[in-house]
Structures are given as structure tokens and as C-alpha cells.
Nucleic acid binder design. Structure first.
Lengths: 223, 223
DNA sequence: TAGATTGTTAATCGATTAACAATC
DNA sequence: TAGATTGTTAATCGATTAACAATC
């Protein structure tokens, strides 16, 4: 009831970073931290840290700071990490396989329930003790199993068909690694991870920087 | 000289998405598009589209719209894609291997020059025709080879040492897949890709949604 | 109590959207 | 010319930062 409604997306996107840095602090046996000290480590302003945390509750004590253990647990709860998340991977290519082997996910209580692929050479093989199934059986699988998050690692051409199945079964979330955007209005929450977008952001910045340098050089030549 | 200086990061982050959608339009043989039509497809407002594009130049014609081919080439240039980028992958684990095999990178003229790892079992093996070298030779390799972007896929504990080598050799960009943030002040441009941050954003949103639903249900029960 | 630091409001900054003159 | 759509300025919106009263 006292829950603040509709946390801004900008705040939500920062929460995982708080979580990582709080983990670090715990590992370093730091038990108390002020917003100013955390600011130095995490790179957000102390004002922003206090604002961010306050959109979820009052986790600190005036004149004292934040108890790291307590704050860590609060953030863990905010991220929904006290629940186990059942996930399946659809598409057992490079990325799908890498994610299936990604041990960090287990630590976050993300449980890989099944892997699907269309390639007969892959079907039947196990990755990280999870067998690869025929993607043709995805529909019936989802009728019988409650899955929280579907991880999509199939090529663009396959996305549309998969999407329809997921919508039909009202999967809760989609973690999308395919290069097309998935956006299901008013429905399933989707997080798109576009490798190439990230790389192109980098090349764009490099290009900008080089442009500035060349411009500066030409100005220097004139002067 | 007529270059607008300091494009906002928000705009730069959107450029790869323009690039993707322009590729689509080209594939669909669409030759002209208005900001309003593009708005429907890409999901930005037409106003934002015109603003974004205008921070780089005047690419459209009033009363007409944008020539898709022309705009595509402009955006390609903005993203620095007319240059070839020489990259190396450091860390040949799950993610490193997946990236080495990721064919989309080749299409963007990203050329994989070398792969490094510390694991003796991997050294000497080739992935996608590129041999894995001993990470101990990275320093001398960088003395002899001009590399644009280093892709970091090593575990947290290895990052610090790698970073020092990269700074020493003034690599231009870092594409970081390790779970620690890399931020080199005033120096190498870095793009951090944190899988688990992305996943936790998703679980956070799921958690928020569930919270809202439960609250609604409890309100309904009272009413 | 004095000092410190939060929680929170107010001020600023930047990004998005709206509006419209310029012009194809 | 009339209609359409850009380029660009002005208005709005939201996010960040600054400031300070509350309080540990």
C-alpha cells in the first residue's frame, strides 16, 4: 500500500549496478556506507543514490549511512531475486550455448529448465545437463510447464513464429538476443539485448572522437 | 568544420537502431520514407527522428521525406562503418567463443585479428580460422599490431591486468563483456555489456508488475 | 550536545515533443 | 500553386543535482 507507484525506467536500469557494488562491499566486509562513499565507487552522485533508493523505501539512517547487508537484501528483493525464475533457452547456437553455460545465472537463482532448437544435429545433446529439445515441441511444452522467462537466441527469421507461441502461453518475460526488436504492447515484458547495437555505439563514438581529433589537427595547421 | 559538436549520448545510442531499420527498408525496396512513416516502424516520434538526424546534417528534403539509400549511407558513415575495425578477443570462454563465431560482426567490417586466453588447453586451437594465443603474449602482440577494439571476455579477476596493458598500448576502444565496469577517465572509449544487469532489469520489472497485480487484487478483495 | 548524513523538496539541466516557417 | 514534410525554434516534460530540515 505504501509502495510508490511507477518507478522511472532510469532508476530501474540502475538497480542491478547497485546490486553488483553492494555484493562487492559485502565481500570486502564493509558494513556501513554513506551515499557519498558509495558515490565514489559506483560513479553516481550521492544525491542520485539517495533519490534512487528512496523511491523504494527508507533504507538508511540519518547521520549514519546505510547498513550494507540490509541494503543488499533490500535491493535483492527489489530485483525479485528471492524468487526462483524458471527459464528456457530457444535457439542453441553460439549465444544460446554460451548462456546455457553461463554460471552467473545459477547464482541469481535462474533455473534453466529446457533448451530448444530446430537443428536435428543438436536435438538430444545436453548442455550443462539440460537436453536440447525439438523446437516443434515448444508449444506443447509451454502448455505443461510454467516458465517465467524465455531467452530468445534464434535468427531473425524465426522470431515471429516463436513470439506468437510465447504470447499464446502468456510467458511473463522475454530476454531477447535476436537482432530484431521484440515489443509486445501491453503484454509480456521484454528486454532486448542487441550486441551489434552496442558495438555500433562504440564505433560511432570512436568515429566521433576521430572526427574531433582531425578537426583539431586541421585547426592547428592553420594556426 | 560544419560538424555539430558533442552529440548527446542519447542520440548516439539510437543511431544503431536507425541503421537496422534502414537496412530493413532497403531490403524491402522502399526508396523514400517520411519521418512519420519511419516513426510507426521504429517507435520513435517523428519529431525525435528529425531532431536526431539533424544533429548530424540535413539528410531529407522538405515536402518529400528521406531517400532511404542516401540516409542509410549517411548513418553508416556516422557509425564509422566505412572503416574496417581490427579487433581482438581476450578470453576464449563461452562468450569469447560465441563472439568469435558471430557472423554479424563480419558484415559490419569488424575483422577478428587474434584471440587470447590463459588456458593451455585452448592455446593453439582455432576458432573461425583465428588461432587462440597465450594471453602472456598480449603485451608484445599489441606492440607490433595496430588494434582498434579489444573485446574483453575474461573473468573479473583478470580484468585489472588486461586493462593496464590496453591503456599502455593506447587501444582506441574496449568492448567489455566482463561483469566489472571498465571506465578509463579521459582515455579509451569503453562500452560495457553486462548480461546479468540486463537480466536483472527484466526480473526487476517482472517483480514490479507482480507487486502491482497483487496490490490490485487486494484492493479488489476489499471493494 | 555536536557532527554527520539521510530523506525530501526545490532548482537546474537536458531530452523530448510540439509548433511552424521554410521549401521541395 | 497547393500540399506535404523537413529543419529548427519554442514549450514541455522528466531526470539529475543542489540544498536543507529532520534526525540518528
Amino acid at each position: 500500500m505504501d509502495n510508490k507507484i511507477d518507478i522511472p525506467m532510469a532508476v530501474i536500469k540502475r538497480m542491478p549496478k547497485y546490486f553488483r557494488y553492494l555484493e562487492d562491499l559485502l565481500r570486502g566486509n564493509i558494513s556501513i556506507i554513506s551515499s557519498r562513499e558509495l558515490s565514489v565507487k559506483i560513479g553516481f552522485t550521492s544525491s542520485q543514490i539517495r533519490q534512487d533508493l528512496n523511491s523504494f523505501g527508507e533504507f538508511g539512517s540519518r547521520g549514519y549511512g546505510y547498513n550494507v547487508q540490509e541494503l543488499y537484501e533490500q535491493v535483492k528483493g527489489i530485483l525479485g531475486l528471492y524468487k526462483e525464475h524458471k527459464v528456457i533457452i530457444i535457439g542453441a547456437g553460439n549465444i544460446g550455448q554460451a548462456l546455457a553455460n553461463y554460471s552467473r545465472l545459477e547464482k541469481l537463482r535462474v533455473r534453466l529448465e529446457a533448451i530448444f532448437d530446430a537443428n536435428p544435429k543438436l536435438i538430444g545433446i545436453s548442455i550443462n545437463d539440460v537436453e536440447i529439445r525439438d523446437v516443434g515441441t515448444l508449444d506443447s511444452y509451454l502448455s505443461e510447464n510454467m516458465i517465467d522467462i524465455c531467452i530468445i537466441c534464434v535468427p531473425c527469421s524465426q522470431v515471429e513464429g516463436i513470439k506468437d507461441i510465447l504470447v499464446k502461453h502468456k510467458v511473463k518475460g522475454i530476454w531477447n538476443f535476436s537482432p530484431v526488436d521484440i515489443d509486445i504492447p501491453g503484454g509480456i515484458i521484454t528486454e532486448n539485448v542487441h550486441f551489434s547495437d552496442s558495438l555500433l555505439t562504440l564505433t560511432c563514438l570512436l568515429n566521433e572522437q576521430q572526427g574531433r581529433q582531425e578537426q583539431k589537427e586541421s585547426e592547428d595547421r592553420i594556426a
